[in-house]
Amino acid sequence: MEDFIKNQTFAVHAVAGVGAITLGTAATYPFETIKTLIQVGSGPDKQLSAHQVFDRVRKLSGASGLYNGFGWLAIGRIMGVGARFGTYELLTAFYKDGRKDNYVYVSEALMAGIVAGGVESLTSSPFELFTVRAQVAAASRVPDTSNLQKPSVSSSSAAKLLRGYCPDVKALDHSVGLLSTLNTKQTNLNGSLKEYPWMMTGTGRAPPVYHVRRPVDVVSLEGWSAMWRGMRSGLVRDCVFGGVFFASWQFLHRAMLDWKAVGMDPIPRFVYIVNFVCIGFSYLLNLVFNDFSIDEDIGPLHPLAVSLAAGFSGSVAAAASHSFDTAKYRSQCLVLPKYITMERKFLRWSLPGKRFERYTGIHPRDRNILFRGIKLRMVCSGITSFILTGSYFFMIDKLT
């Protein structure tokens, strides 16, 4: 009977968590789409506004285009946020073990948040790839290939690497015509040249990103490693986000508990708090005495206050990690076929940029556009964190 109750409690919290994450993602997803398109569509000399992006998506894909890729992001966030909070709770459980006050220091929350962010990045990276490419497809003018004549010979390599893709026949014939001027006795030279992978588009470039957005297309053309493209910048982004988020949230949580303890009658145990007007000074005084109140004596905080603290922490964490977010999304919009990756490996191709840029996955050409869309991301992250926390408490209260 005890095991059944424990399993039922776990199921209730799991259902509440999934519902809260889905609701928070759905509420801000149109802004997420606009923010992503600003990041990947801007350049050093080209700065897109939110109004321009919205008009383009509405004209090409309609209002529903703002929700392109929502399913991928919802699944990725359910798994990623679950891994983040699960890892954080496991690590902080070791910190709190043996302490009377059940307290976690801000520095400990920072370290646990960094580790939790790394686990989240590894979990949610493949889903972010499909989300970004679906969002780009909503703002791209995809040509209609139903009326195009598919060549029988030259489509063999394209059909193997990217199903359903029809290459540009004119560009393909023109490129082959430039290459087939060699004096040779081979009768089927044109057809042989067209079967090479780098002739898929006829221009020597990879297919556009809106043609490579399904899992089967990504795996067949780019390989399994493409699922974790931009892992360097994504790992740094989520580690910074997790560390700042949990550290600021723990600081605000502790400050709200101390503020609630001021003026309580009877005074909670082990509290050395004078009724100061400035809450920050009372918090510093607690650090000097290193003797905090026991949270059970103070009682739980109001869910609205906890939700507001989570929203503020999410906005601050988003601002601190936004540059790495831009670098990750821009790298995920690059289509790198397997033969190009293999050539780079054989030639020992080194990443461009300075040492910090190489370690964090930032391309040198993106230096001036790393903070595009930072306001939208702060708003989205703050609202999502607020809705996630508030709806989670609400569902737990109703389900239990």
Rank of each mutant, 00 (worst) to 15 (best):
Q47M: 08
D97F: 15
S64M: 01
S154D: 06
K345W: 14
E89M: 11
E195F: 03
R84M: 13
S42I: 07
M264I: 01
L129M: 04
L122W: 09
L301W: 02
H174P: 03
D97I: 00
A93M: 02
G65V: 01
G204N: 07
G202W: 05
P197M: 09
V106H: 03
A63F: 10
G17Q: 07
G113M: 06
I369P: 00
N290G: 13
V142R: 15
G299A: 05
Q332T: 06
D173P: 00
G230R: 00
S124I: 05
P352T: 06
C278E: 13
F10Y: 12
S156R: 14
H13V: 06
A226H: 02
V153G: 04
D295Q: 12
D217I: 08
Y329Q: 14
S146T: 14
Y105A: 01
I75C: 10
T187H: 11
N68P: 02
Q149R: 13
G98I: 04
I396P: 04
F394W: 13
V262K: 14
L73Q: 15
H253S: 12
A255W: 09
G43F: 10
F276G: 10
G299M: 01
S42E: 07
G202A: 10
G242M: 08
L235Y: 03
G113R: 06
L347H: 12
G177Q: 10
T360K: 09
T25W: 05
I369N: 01
L399C: 00
L301N: 03
L252T: 10
V106Q: 06
P207H: 07
L287F: 12
A247H: 04
K194C: 06
K6Y: 03
L148M: 13
I340V: 12
S180M: 10
A171W: 02
G314L: 06
G65T: 04
G390M: 13
K100N: 07
M395R: 03
N7W: 09
V15T: 14
I267M: 11
S140N: 09
A310P: 01
K35Q: 15
T28D: 06
A310D: 02
V271L: 12
G71T: 12
D238A: 11
P167F: 08
L66T: 01
L122E: 00
N290W: 05
R214I: 00
E128P: 00
V15L: 15
P143C: 07
D297E: 04
K185R: 09
D101S: 05
V212D: 01
L221I: 01
Y210V: 10
L351M: 11
G86A: 07
V379I: 15
N190S: 12
A112D: 09
N290R: 11
S248E: 00
L178Y: 06
G41I: 09
T203K: 15
D366S: 11
E222I: 01
S381Q: 14
Y359I: 15
K6P: 02
N368R: 14
L221Q: 00
A11G: 08
A138L: 08
F54E: 04
G76T: 02
G65Q: 00
D297Q: 04
P337E: 01
R77L: 14
